[in-house]
Amino acid sequence: MMNKRDISKELREKMDQFNVDVPEISLKQSLSQRMVNWLSEPVKSPADFLFRQWTPLKIALFPIAAFVCSIPFAFI
């Protein structure tokens, strides 16, 4: 059966570079802390996505499309 020593020294040295520092973790779950973590998670700005995906023509047509889509609401 293979063991750690069967791995080449060079590869072992590279793998040993991945050290992990363990933060303070408590046994008790805190829902509020999890919510804070979730809300503070870095995310991309949706505006970047729109600007990358949308061509000038699409941007120009957006108000017209929004107007057309909102017409049915006028009859409610």
Binding site: V20, P23, I25, L27, K28, E41
Partner: peptide, 27 residues
């Protein structure tokens, strides 16, 4: 807990997620 955290961190490379999984494992 240290071993569990180290495993999940090396697997996900996400600190918050690994800490949550460590807590959840024991619960």
């Amino acid at each position: 807990h240290r071993q569990i955290y180290q495993f999940t961190y090396r697997y996900t490379q996400d600190e918050t997620l690994s800490a949550e999984i460590t807590q959840d494992t024991f619960i």
